[in-house]
Design a protein around this nucleic acid. Structure first.
Ligand SMILES: [Mn+2]
Ligand SMILES: [Mn+2]
Ligand SMILES: [Mn+2]
Ligand SMILES: [Mn+2]
Lengths: 215, 215
DNA sequence: AGATATTTTTAGTTTTGTCTAAATTTAAAT
DNA sequence: ATTTAAATTTAGACAAAACTAAAAATATCT
C-alpha cells in the first residue's frame, strides 16, 4: 500500500467513527487538504483493492480488509507517539506530525519490537487507545468533562482535540493526563465550569470542557 | 527533497568514495536497480537543484550542498541502525532494510533526540562511522584483515560487505565487532589465512579477509 | 413541484519518477 | 584510423497522485 492510500484509509477510519453509515467525499477532502475530485479518484482505487465499499454519490465505508489495515496504521501512529514522548522526551504537542510520517514505515517486526520495547502500552500520549496486533481496541467508558457530574472526582484520561494549540493551552493550565478533576459549579448561562484541578480552583470554558475526557 | 532524490544522493555519495573524480551513470543504475535513462533524468534534476555537478557523458560529483545532504541521510540511516540493534534487539543483519526507510523521515529534532537517546554513538552496528550533525566524520585508521601483519593482535572494528548473507556467516563463525584476531599463517597460494579468533584457531578465506576491518 | 444550491463525479492536464527503444557519444579493438 | 562495442543520453510513453473546469446527481428552499 502507498503512503497516500494509507492516509486515505486512516482518514476514512476516523470519519467513520462519527458517520458510520458512509463517509462523504468532501469530508475526506477536508481532512486531507485535497480536492474532492482527487478523493473520488482514490476511492475508486481503494474500492478496486477491496479496502472500501464505494457507490457513486453514496459515500464510502471500510471493508473488513480496509478496517483492519486502518487500525494497523493507527496502531503504528500511536506506538510511535509513545516512543517519541516516553523515550525521546518530546512533549505531547510535538509528536503528531512526526508520527504522521513514521506510521508509514512497513516492517511488522519493527512494530512488534517497538511495542515490546515500550512495554505494550494501551494508550498513546493523548489518551487514545492503541489497537493490538490483531486490531482489537480496549474499550473504556470515558466521558467529556462537560458531561461530568457535580462534586464527583474524575481524572483526566484523554483529549478529544489533540491540536498543538489546545495541548499547549493545557500545559499552561497545568492540566495533564492523570490530573484530578472535581466540578464545583456549572454556570447555566454559558456552561462555564468551576473546576477543582489538582486541588486548585479554575474556570473552564465549555469549549475546553468539550475536549477533555475524564473517568 | 523527495525519497527518490535522497536515495540517489546517498548512492552517489557511496560511489564517490571509490571514484572521487566522477561517478558513472551505470554504476548508479546498478546500485538503485533502475535503468541508466532514469538516472540521467534524475541527474539533471539534482544538477538543477545544485546538489550535484553534472556534465553529459562525464560522470557526476556531489556539490558542497549535495555532499552535506548525503551525509545527513547517512547519519540518519546509521543512527536508526543503532537504535534497532541496541534498543529493539534486532540483529545486525536485519536492520539495513528498515533503516533504508527510516532514513527518509524528515524531522531534525527527531534525529537530534534520537542521537542523544542513543548516547551519541560514533559507529553503527557494522562499524561504519556516524557523521555528527555538522556532517563531520571521525576518521579511524582501520585496515582489512587481508592486509594484517602476522602474529600481531588486532580487533575487529567493522565489515566492508554488510550483506545479510555475510553477516549471518560471521554470526555462525562467532565473529563480531570486538573479536580479537591474530593471523598465524598466510597460505601464499590462495591467500587463505589461519587466524586465531578469540583464542580459537580458524581458517579464513581471502574473500572473507577482504571484507573484515581490523585495528 | 420546481428552482436553486451543494455535493460529487467526469474529462482533461500536470508533475514525478519510471520505462523501452532509438540515437548519440565515448571507449576499445582490430 | 576505422570499425566495433559499451556507455550514455534523448524521445516518447506510462502510472500515480494531484489539479481545474465542466457536467451530473443529490439536497434544500420557497
Ligand atoms: Mn500519514
Ligand atoms: Mn495521538
Ligand atoms: Mn532509502
Ligand atoms: Mn550500517
Amino acid at each position: 500500500m502507498t503512503t497516500s492510500e494509507e492516509n486515505y484509509l486512516k482518514v476514512i477510519y476516523h470519519l467513520s467513527q462519527v458517520s458510520p453509515k458512509g463517509v462523504n467525499t468532501n469530508a475526506i477532502a477536508g481532512m486531507l487538504e485535497t480536492k474532492a475530485s482527487s478523493v473520488t479518484d482514490m476511492l475508486k482505487k481503494l474500492s478496486d483493492k477491496d479496502l472500501v465499499s464505494y457507490q457513486k454519490y453514496q459515500g464510502v465505508t471500510l471493508t473488513e480488509n480496509g478496517f483492519l489495515s486502518a487500525k494497523m496504521i493507527v496502531r503504528k501512529h500511536r506506538l510511535w507517539e509513545v516512543f517519541l514522548v516516553d523515550k525521546l522526551q518530546f512533549s505531547w504537542d510535538e509528536v503528531h506530525e512526526i508520527a504522521e510520517e513514521l506510521e508509514h514505515i512497513q516492517s511488522i517486526a519493527l512494530i512488534d519490537k517497538l511495542d515490546a520495547f515500550l512495554g505494550h502500552p494501551d494508550f498513546d500520549p493523548h489518551g487514545d487507545p492503541i489497537p493490538n496486533r490483531q486490531g482489537e481496541i480496549k474499550k473504556t467508558s470515558k466521558l467529556l468533562l462537560s458531561e461530568a457530574e457535580l462534586n464527583q472526582e474524575y481524572h483526566c484520561v484523554g483529549v478529544k482535540d489533540s491540536s498543538s494549540e489546545f495541548l499547549k493551552y493545557l500545559d499552561k493550565q497545568k492540566i495533564a493526563l492523570g490530573s484530578v478533576f472535581k466540578v464545583i459549579e456549572k454556570e447555566s448561562f454559558d456552561d462555564t465550569l468551576t473546576v477543582e484541578i489538582n486541588a486548585q480552583e479554575k474556570i473552564i470554558s465549555n469549549k475546553i470542557a468539550n475536549n477533555l475526557y475524564v473517568q
